[in-house]
């Protein structure tokens, strides 16, 4: 199938997605990376809507673009990393990374060549609505749902423990900083 036969919404959204993802990876400024990643999430949400997964699109926006990316931005601002702090490195690293990622792409696409083209059957639009998804979540996927609650508690406890200020050590570090500045 030629690329011009593809529907226009899919082409435009894919183009935006890949462009923003490339900017996330190549931009020098971490804040620009975060903003480009938010744009990537928006276009992926649009893909979800095309795929009859409406509730998934909204959740993707709220959880990823709303919560996780704000967390990233907070950490960036907190650590004052908005300026470029990354050291300049040789182009060899970039070439090696590009070759590795490109090889993986070639291997995956080559392995898909023999799979043949399968046209999507298409879901009914009701399948992605919250009514149906909630019913499935609370019946078939009840145990994983409860387990994900435990995972969240563990992650929260871990984050609080890791982020808690170790007071003696902190005082020592601050003293060192003062001495270095003096």
């Amino acid at each position: 199938m030629h690329i011009t036969n593809l529907p226009l919404p899919f082409l435009i959204l894919s183009f935006i997605t890949i462009l923003c993802a490339l900017y996330v990876v190549t931009s020098k400024n971490p804040v620009h990376s975060v903003l480009a990643l938010i744009l990537t999430f928006f276009s992926i949400s649009a893909h979800y809507i095309l795929l009859n997964a409406q509730f998934l699109a909204i959740v993707n926006l709220m959880v990823y673009a709303g919560a996780i990316m704000v967390l990233f931005l907070f950490v960036l601002m907190l650590l004052n990393l908005s300026k470029d702090t990354e050291p300049v490195k040789s182009n060899l690293w970039g070439v090696a990374a590009a070759i590795s990622a490109g090889l993986l792409l070639v291997v995956i696409t080559a392995s898909l060549q023999k799979s043949g083209i399968a046209v999507m059957k298409g879901n009914s639009p009701e399948i992605g609505l919250v009514k149906n998804l909630g019913r499935v979540l609370m019946t078939e996927y009840l145990v994983p749902f409860e387990l994900s609650g435990i995972l969240f508690i563990a992650a929260m406890v871990g984050a609080v423990l890791l982020g808690k200020r170790d007071s003696e050590k902190q005082d020592l570090l601050q003293q060192n900083d003062v001495q270095e500045n003096a």
Partner: peptide
């Protein structure tokens, strides 16, 4: 793939939720 499977199959979309859970926990830690 959830769309590809067709009729009344929301399993693919459910897995996306669990991946989001794992991603959020991973980002926090």
């Amino acid at each position: 793939f959830s769309e590809y499977m067709g009729d009344k199959d929301a399993n693919g979309q459910m897995f996306v939720f669990f991946i989001m859970v794992v991603a959020a926990a991973e980002a926090a830690v």
